[in-house]
Design a protein around this nucleic acid. Structure first.
Ligand SMILES: [Mn+2]
Ligand SMILES: [Mn+2]
Ligand SMILES: [Mn+2]
Ligand SMILES: [Mn+2]
Lengths: 230, 230
DNA sequence: GGACAAAGTTAGGACATACTAACTTCTTTC
DNA sequence: GAAAGAAGTTAGTATGTCCTAACTTTGTCC
């Protein structure tokens, strides 16, 4: 096994951020990392150099960073912890889905591999977290399927919600109230022009949401085919 | 509510150490704190001054420290977290009792009050951790009963094991093998002179342990009365 | 009551992480 | 291809925690 748990909490969060920005293999810009971690860009420059020295990142001054293979493995390990913990909190401890993220953001750095494995086993080796995000396996593979968002479904098309992107608790609570949750089947009934509200049907309910919110709802298209609107 | 979760992990560990050394209200010596936390005494001097400045400790140079009321509350909060987590790991996740401590030592700093409360509720509001140590309540009270150790029971006396003091995994595993566990009823059969082995009876089993180990096994005396040996 | 050992403190430095302010490099636009 | 604005970096500083080495205080013992 490679260099064990010598990674600090900030380092793990950097790697996770870089992973999600680069979608696994792409590059991440300094400013984007800074924004995601709520840090000053100058702080990111400094840290990124250190991580590159440790062989976790490939870094070219003024040109952003990419994860190395070792950095990617570390990022996926943290991501697995994060998502297993979220799933466990929801399943085993009755946490509401809008509050699992914050808790997991801290626990992911403190939980041992053994704990995470026991959690996963206890709730039946879940494949996704409560928001529908795929849980990396222990050997570091993840489902990288790219889904369409509700904002991109054409009028008349239906889809099953597979994932809600983003972790803002207010947003999650609102979607929960609307019952827009992973597993739900939703049809786009109409779409107002000029980025206007999108009207959705789910079961016998009908509702309207803005395109910004709709963009956070990822679906697996059904029946009809999906396409860019507008 | 007073100054919320602004305490760092090292600070929480200091307060916990000072609490246990002083048994809640007594003073703790610099060297003892240093030893318990595996730090250099000089490091303790520095930290202790900062904690005193924050109002968590009463500190007189060259004369050790005591927890203030606010320090005591913080210590008990961490101790509660630690012990609830240990109990939860053992009960809900099947952790062996010799491995809960290490995990709890990290999680205690990352778990929110809500998580700890949910854990406690899920396993039925336990009153002791897997080693028999009392769990402080949310409002900061603890059972401070002082128990006799097996090393102090007179020959012929019996007791029920209420607690095993210390967290060395090897020791805990060994006691587990001997089935010397909280709840077990044990009788002192004989005691060899000059700090020699103590022979114990438990059910139909008989066994012999050294006095150093026996001192870690705390019992509630039964039937016969307890007294100093020798 | 003075000497010595034990206990404790200060001094000085390291390392990780963050910040602001000032500077440099890159990219876009005409 | 030069200017302007965006993006990114460096310099200098702060904070928290720890270390070792050198010093001071305390308590004990003759
Ligand atoms: Mn999350
Ligand atoms: Mn985190
Ligand atoms: Mn413990
Ligand atoms: Mn701890």
């Amino acid at each position: 096994m490679p260099g064990r748990e010598l990674l600090t909490a900030p380092v793990e969060d950097y790697l996770k951020a870089i992973y999600t920005i680069g979608k696994g293999t792409g590059a991440a810009a300094t400013n984007e990392i800074a924004q995601r971690l709520a840090l000053a860009p100058a702080s990111v420059s400094g840290m990124v150099r250190r991580l590159a020295d440790q062989g976790l990142l490939a870094y070219e001054r003024y040109h952003g960073v990419k994860l190395t293979e070792s950095g990617r493995r570390a990022a996926l390990r943290t991501l697995r912890r994060h998502r297993v913990i979220e799933a466990y909190l929801a399943e085993a401890l009755g946490y509401p889905w809008d509050r699992v993220h914050e808790e997991a953001e801290r626990l992911e750095h403190a939980a041992s591999d053994e704990l995470v494995d026991r959690m996963a086993a206890t709730i039946g080796e879940p494949e996704v977290d409560p928001h529908g995000a795929p849980i990396p396996t222990k050997d570091g593979s993840v489902d990288e399927t790219v889904y369409t968002s509700l904002a991109d479904l054409i009028v008349g098309a239906s889809g099953v919600v597979v994932r809600v992107a983003g972790e803002d608790p207010e947003m999650l609570r609102y979607l929960g109230e609307l019952s827009i949750l992973p597993g739900k089947r939703i049809t786009v009934k109409s779409r107002a022009p000029y980025d206007g509200p999108i009207t959705l049907g789910s079961g016998r309910h009908e509702m309207s949401i803005g395109p910004a919110l709709a963009a956070h709802v990822l679906v697996a298209p059904l029946a009809d085919r999906a396409g860019k609107h507008g």
